[in-house]
Structures are given as C-alpha cells and as structure tokens.
C-alpha cells in the first residue's frame, strides 16, 4: 500500500478527531444553553425542555462513541508503521541480494529471510485491514448517533414553531443546534469516505 495514501489517512484522522471533539463540545454547549433558556421560561417551554434534554443526552452518547475512535486509530497507525518498518528490512535484503548477484553470487539463506519478512508483512497487512474495518464500524456508530441527533433537532424546530408566541428565541437556538450537528456530520462523512478508500486499496493489495 502506498505510504503517501496512509499518511493522508493519518492526517485525516487527526483533523476528523479534532473537528469531531470540537463540534461535540459545541453541541454540548448549545444543549446547555437551550436548557437554561427553557428553565428561565418555566412551564411554558416544557415541550422544548424535553427536546433540549434529549439533545444533551445524545451529545453525551456521541462523546462516548467518539472517545473509542482514538482507541482504534492508534493501533491502525501502529500497524501501518510496523509494515513500513518491515518493508525496510525486505528492501535492505533485496539490495544486498542484488549486489551479490552482480558478482555472480547467490545466498540461499538471504533469500529465505527475505521470504520470511514478506510473509510477515502479508500477515500484518491482513491484521491492519481488520483494524481498519473495526475503525469504520466505530465511525458508523458515530454516524448513527448523529442521525439520531438530527432527528432531535427536527423535533426541536417543530417545538420551537409551536412555542413561537412565548417570545423565547427558540428558532435561533434550534438553528444553532442544527448547525453544530451538521458540522460534525460533515466531518464524519468525509472521514468515512477516506477510510473507505483505504479499505478499498487494502482489499486489492491482499
């Protein structure tokens, strides 16, 4: 697999994790603001209070799912860097074999050790692919959580429309919530796309 492609995914992992963490903090803040607003208006905004509470609870669930992301990203990076390390061995043994061939010499044990490292790399590539698929599954869980959150935002908009005569700026609060959710949704979708392309490449390699 191309090291530059892996590097792109590594960079994307960093950007996605940062963006997801930042957006989730933002979602949590928006949810808290909404709850404060509901409390200020007493029982008149009880319906929206239920939505704000649901939004906050889901935000906590999303944070929990996102925390598992790093647990899988680190082993994936380590697996690929180990492959890179072992490829260096193969390259080095190949260079020695080539140099010896120029003098008409063949070393059987050198060839054996090169083959052993190639087999090791093949096993490590299979393992790296398994980790990658686990990471995609973790991203899927996060994506499902976001879809649920989008549903809560839609409910919030309906409740906000119903409570418009109270004068509370619920439409704005709902819009802010929606924006925060959209940001994290986009970040996850982009990241998943990058992981899929790596998965495709690794499936053609193995």
């Amino acid at each position: 697999m191309e090291i530059q492609h892996i590097m792109q995914v590594v960079d994307a992992s960093f950007v996605a994790r940062q963006s997801i963490e930042k957006s989730l903090r933002e979602i949590d803040r928006r949810a808290l603001n909404a709850m404060v607003l509901v409390k200020r208006h007493g029982n008149t905004l009880a319906g929206y209070g239920v939505v704000a509470q649901a939004f906050r609870e889901r935000a906590a669930n999303l944070k929990e799912s996102a925390s598992h992301l790093q647990e899988t990203i680190a082993p994936l990076i380590q697996a690929h860097m180990r492959i890179l390390q072992h490829q260096r061995f193969v390259a080095s043994f190949s260079a020695i074999a080539q140099a010896m061939a120029q003098y008409g010499q063949i070393c059987a044990s050198l060839e054996n050790i090169r083959t052993r490292w190639r087999d090791t790399i093949a096993r490590e590539e299979v393992e790296a692919r398994k980790i990658l698929l686990r990471l995609i599954a973790t991203v899927d869980v996060l994506q499902e959580g976001i879809e649920e959150q989008e549903y809560v935002v839609t409910n919030g908009r309906i409740e906000a429309a119903l409570a418009e005569d109270t004068g509370a700026p619920l439409m704005r609060v709902s819009r802010d919530m929606g924006e925060a959710v959209r940001t994290v949704s986009n970040a996850i979708r982009t990241y998943r796309h990058q992981l899929e392309s790596l998965a495709y490449e690794s499936s053609t390699d193995i």
Binding site: V10, D11, F14, A74, Q78, M81
Partner: peptide, 19 residues
C-alpha cells in the same frame, strides 16, 4: 529509534497532524 518508530508515530498523531 527504529524499533520504537510505530509507537512514537502513533503517539505523535495524538497531538499534531504529521503533515
């Protein structure tokens, strides 16, 4: 060192993008 490169790299990505 060469031997610890995979774990150094993985730890690095926790704090900065390698690019």
């Amino acid at each position: 060192g060469f031997e610890v490169f995979p774990q150094v790299f993985a730890a690095l990505v926790e704090v900065i993008p390698p690019s």
